[in-house]
């Protein structure tokens, strides 16, 4: 691994893994405690439409995906507030339409065929410098937003109705959160691909929640876990020549089950006494 770090692409892979983990830790924590995993999945898949659009228009795919996923996240936000009872169905529809638009736009793009797989399963080994800077910028933006609205985000996540009654602008915060999810998703797609976005967004916070007593600490521990998963996954994929995105998710999944098993075991012991 250390020898591999002399390659630029390996340095970028490691860096992007770290940058993405920070965003995942912060935003994923909010996703988990607000129980908006499904809408996050919708945003991730609809982002594919943006990638298609970017290729069609000849702009960098990460910018295209960012624009499109922020847009679709706002649409899903409006839908989920206006039509609560069928929100999941409509989000599912936008999810599928977004992907379909992406595929059709890539079909219509003249010239070489884009490697679909790299967006579905990630391409952490080919992150350009430009995207590293873009990720750093998004990390700083997300950090500042969460830092500024921390008290209000915490209150909204814990008790939305109460927060509304004391005058916190719930809708504004909800849309801000969806926007942050959309931007994180665009980063995560680079690393593990859009199929596995949800795993990287939810597994670290799920584990961290059990060992922390505040939302801020949960965000920090989630970020650290994310860094552990991406770095270990990257090392394993390099050593054994495996697909990096899937390996990262498998590392996260293993830790998830170990943590789950430990809980079960603890509960089992307690019952016996």
């Amino acid at each position: 691994m250390l020898a591999a770090l002399q390659f630029d692409f390996m340095q970028n892979a490691l860096l992007s893994g770290i940058l993405v983990s920070v965003a995942c830790g912060i935003v994923g924590t909010l996703v988990v405690v607000n129980r908006i995993v499904f809408i996050s999945g919708g945003i991730a898949h609809a982002a594919y439409g943006g990638i298609g659009l970017a290729f069609y228009l000849g702009v960098p795919p990460s910018f295209g995906a960012a624009f499109f996923s922020v847009f679709s996240s706002m649409v899903m936000g409006v839908v989920s507030l206006k039509n609560k009872e069928r929100a999941d169905t409509i989000i599912g529809v936008i999810w599928a339409i977004g992907m379909a638009i992406g595929i059709i736009l890539i079909d219509l793009t003249p010239g070489y065929n884009v490697d679909l797989m790299s967006y579905l399963f990630g391409s952490i080994l080919s992150v350009p410098d430009r995207d590293i800077w873009f990720m750093l910028f998004l990390d700083i933006l997300i950090f500042l937003l969460v830092w500024f609205f921390y008290k209000e985000l915490l209150a909204m996540s814990y008790d939305e109705e109460f927060s509304f009654t004391v005058g916190i602008p719930i809708k504004f915060l909800y849309f801000t959160l969806l926007g942050m999810i959309a931007l994180s998703v665009v980063m995560i797609i680079q690393v593990v691909g859009l199929i596995m976005v949800i795993a990287l967004l939810t597994i670290p916070p799920f584990i961290a929640e059990k060992y922390t007593l505040s939302l801020a600490k949960m965000m920090i521990l989630s970020s650290l876990l994310g860094i552990l998963f991406t770095t270990t996954g990257l090392w394993l994929s390099y050593t054994y020549n495996l697909t990096s995105g899937a390996t990262i998710i498998m590392v996260a999944g293993c830790v998830f089950f170990i943590s789950f098993g430990m809980d079960f075991f603890k509960g089992y012991l307690r019952r016996d006494i």
Partner: peptide, 28 residues
């Protein structure tokens, strides 16, 4: 609110829940 039983795992202390009562729009 009605006694909420659903958010049991939420990582938040008694102190932080109570402080929430002091929030206001103008204090963001």
């Amino acid at each position: 609110p009605q006694n909420m039983d659903f958010n049991r795992n939420f990582p938040i202390s008694v102190m932080d829940v109570t402080l929430m009562g002091r929030l206001k729009r103008s204090r963001i």
